[in-house]
Design a protein around this nucleic acid. Structure first.
Lengths: 170, 170
DNA sequence: TAATATGTTTAGAATATTGTAAACACTCTA
DNA sequence: TAGAGTGTTTACAATATTCTAAACATATTA
């Protein structure tokens, strides 16, 4: 392959790999995606292993995760027993789905923390002995209430934003 | 301190600590913030060290990061030599600023990757020997163009969204 | 100035993550 | 059915992160 073209691609692949790692994914995942994104035809696992000089195990695990996230598609090539892969190029969709999913379970996690805390604070309210403690308990309840309010509003806002981004063509 | 109140707080602190770690911050950072968020008065480093049973070094480093991110404020308490801290309770603002900042440099990173790749591909265009390679080079350029377009639109959209969230009261 | 109070830095331990190499399992075909 | 081709799993190695403990630096007070 043209040495300069390869170098140009490497720059892109490395960059996306780095970006991937700062987003909480592995570097290899980003590199695999970038390679497929630049490739004019589907690539097999061994193609990618050779091109990126990584182990097969790592390629196997990372490509599967990309597939689960909907970032790559498995392609059947007539006459070959290999699995081939292609990048899902609707990047906007991938990102949107990812954000929707990750914010959703984060919001749920927060909701659960608040809920559990509310239960626990209810149990305390009875046994307040002195005024100092009553103040603390009251303060805690107050903060929980604030956070609950913020959570609800953020939840609504996120829903609206996601709807909004779906109507937009990137 | 009331044992049950303490247990209730611990639940909250642990939850926020975990959330913090999934967001790319350290667990201790989240725990410190949560503790301050629930406290009805500013706390010193030693207060927090005792309450969370962590090392002073870790507390020192993590509280400083929280301060840099604008999530806690340092408070001067007349008559004490200690530094006291208080949670910044405008959570919406903290989150917004954080998102604005982190997306900004991610967008810049992507822009730089694309730009560098464009330069590199320019150098290749001259020495295309056969049609197979010309096709690949063309394909690569095409993809870069697509990504550039997406980047530009995402950039605009993000700007608008941030503006929008600033006008909203949480 | 000695002793104390306080926060910061650092060296290293503990832990988590992620990649590699090789064994493994499965499928196809000769 | 033996053997080759292909992807997956696993045990381990390399690396990065983050905490702790202790040394250190600085400021304050007696």
């Amino acid at each position: 392959m043209n040495r300069n073209l390869e170098r140009a691609q490497d720059n892109f692949i490395e960059g996306i790999g780095h970006l991937s790692s700062t987003l909480g994914f592995s570097k290899v995942m980003g590199q695999l995606y970038a390679l497929l994104y630049l490739s004019d035809k589907p690539l097999s696992l061994d193609d990618m292993v050779k091109r990126l000089v990584i182990s097969k195990g790592s390629a196997s695990i990372n490509i599967r995760e990309l597939e689960e996230k909907g970032a790559v598609k498995r392609i059947w090539m007539k006459g070959s027993r290999r699995n081939f892969y292609e990048a899902e190029t609707d990047l906007a969709k991938i990102i949107r789905d990812r954000i929707a999913l990750s914010t959703r379970w984060r919001m749920d996690e927060i909701r659960d923390i608040i809920q559990k805390s509310e239960e626990l604070i209810q149990n305390v309210k009875g046994d307040s002995n002195n005024s100092e403690e009553r103040r603390r308990i009251k303060f805690y309840s107050q903060r929980l209430k604030e956070m609950k309010r913020l959570h609800k509003r953020a939840h609504n806002l996120l829903g609206k934003l996601l709807l909004f981004t779906k109507t937009i063509k990137f």
